[in-house]
């Protein structure tokens, strides 16, 4: 899986492309933890536009970031889940604790509305 990142205020925006499974998890965790710690970021926006596959290993890595950020009052937002990817998020119950938006702009707008 390819990962690209950019910072917007106190939020890290991560664009992913490819398949998110056991093999992708170490790089995903390493990069996100490193950048968020270095810049004191508390919110995470994950763009799934280019992600064609996710299994429970990928979901576990996302839940791990959610648990960490939730302790600091941070949010994890999900963008552009394809139907087959959304199905596993729904089955795992993650859409009950993480918001899904149709664009990065809408997610950032929601974060700003929250007074951050």
């Amino acid at each position: 899986m390819e990962i690209s990142t950019k910072i917007n205020d106190n939020c890290l925006i991560v664009k992913m492309r490819g398949e998110f499974d056991l093999h992708s998890v170490p790089e995903f965790k390493k990069r996100i933890i490193k950048i968020m710690a270095a810049h004191n970021l508390i919110h995470l926006v994950l763009s799934f536009k280019g992600v064609i596959f996710v299994d429970s290993s990928g979901l576990g890595a996302i839940l791990g970031r959610y648990r960490e950020l939730d302790k600091k009052g941070g949010k994890v937002f999900l963008i552009n889940l394809r139907p087959q990817v959304k199905k596993v998020f729904t089955l795992a119950g993650l859409l009950k604790i993480m918001q899904e938006y149709d664009s990065e702009e809408t997610a950032i707008e929601q974060l700003n509305k929250g007074g951050i």
């Binding site: 429970s56 979901l59 576990g60 791990g64 596993v88 089955l91």
Partner: peptide, 11 residues
């Protein structure tokens, strides 16, 4: 395992 959801068999 930490950071694993325990959902593999449920899926």
């Amino acid at each position: 395992k930490e950071d694993h959801m325990g959902l593999g068999l449920a899926f």
